[in-house]
Design a protein around this nucleic acid. Structure first.
Lengths: 183, 183
DNA sequence: ATAATAATAGTCAGTACTGACTAAAGTGAA
DNA sequence: TTCACTTTAGTCAGTACTGACTATTATTAT
């Protein structure tokens, strides 16, 4: 997905340094990618080698020069190809916490329910923040992207809510089982 | 997470070949990890080097010998440590399809809604299969793990349902916008 | 018995990712 | 104006992962 993001951002916001691309990702895509800066540079180099983007040394006065990247014609084609391609992707999540649960018989039952209730509070907090963040972010989003940006926020909110529902339900089941196991 | 899974499975089902560990993962953990066989071997080697497990050459008769791994004392400690550690993990999903959506102004609107309705059907199918799979898998799960196994299945089901709700809602919004845009 | 196919048990080289680091330019406060 | 702190702009070495491959043993169909 990262080359798609890079190409898309370069096309939407014009030529940028690697660092600015990363900043744009945070500003624009923060809630749906958590890529790190060195990874951006890694892909920029690969993409330049593949002829998708062109590097230009950006020297102003006496400053040490920096590298600005811009999309080439091949990059535009690749962008469309990637966009088509990613439409095919399947939803198939994995949840790290499931591993812990599967082996939870090795774990003190109290630690597990405690952890789940921390999870519940954390999710509630995140949901609140997400609402705030939606408002804050929307300001930076170009007008014609607002519909999709909203759909993306909805996406996250629905999944956080699902996670919350699940965590509360799981907590309850484990508590009941605990009570039953003791009797 | 993988070392946790490997240690847990070796403790629960006794010493195994790398290949069998992978099979157990499919049987027991299929719906919450999608690790590949070479990755299992990679971790087995690392874990042996770290003294968490011990390799034993398993030679029966004239056959070429194979390697069986068993958990060492250090491994038991590490398992408990990892279990504690993974209790802290935060839920923070990313969805590849969001990238496509964010750049969907470069995309034919019909292609997008088509893709979303394919997504909807695919999710419905997956939800049905998940129900079937739950029944099929439960047979292989040790009695004392059934509660947690069920909670794990619920986890997946709730998120698939959330994804379904979202996809249907997104499809509707885009269709409405399309109609509005035309008028 | 035997040829074909599937399951078992790996190896290895190449790709992807990132923590920890460097270093310059800007900023603000005393 | 200079010291401390933040932001910008990157590099590099090491870790994690896996596609594509090999090779042996089991099963099944003929």
């Amino acid at each position: 997905m990262i080359p798609l993001y890079i190409l898309g951002l370069l096309m939407r916001f014009g030529p940028q340094h690697g660092y600015r691309i990363k900043k744009l990702m945070e500003e624009q895509l923060e809630d749906f990618t958590q890529i790190k800066l060195p990874t951006v540079y890694y892909h920029l180099e690969k993409m330049e080698a593949a002829g998708l983007i062109t590097a230009q040394r950006d020297k102003q006065g006496e400053r040490t020069e920096k590298t600005v990247y811009l999309v080439s014609n091949g990059g535009i084609d690749k962008f469309k190809e990637l966009l088509q391609q990613t439409l095919q992707i399947q939803y198939r999540p994995t949840f790290d916490i499931d591993g812990t649960l599967y082996f939870s018989d090795s774990l003190d039952r109290g630690a597990l329910t405690d952890s789940l209730s921390r999870h519940v509070s954390s999710l509630k907090k995140t949901l609140d923040e997400l609402e705030l963040h939606r408002n804050a972010t929307m300001v930076h989003i170009p007008e014609d992207c607002k519909i999709s940006a909203n759909i993306i926020f909805e996406h996250h909110i629905l999944h956080y809510q699902a996670e919350l529902t699940w965590a509360e339900q799981a907590w309850k089941l484990l508590k009941e089982d605990e009570a039953y196991g003791k009797s």
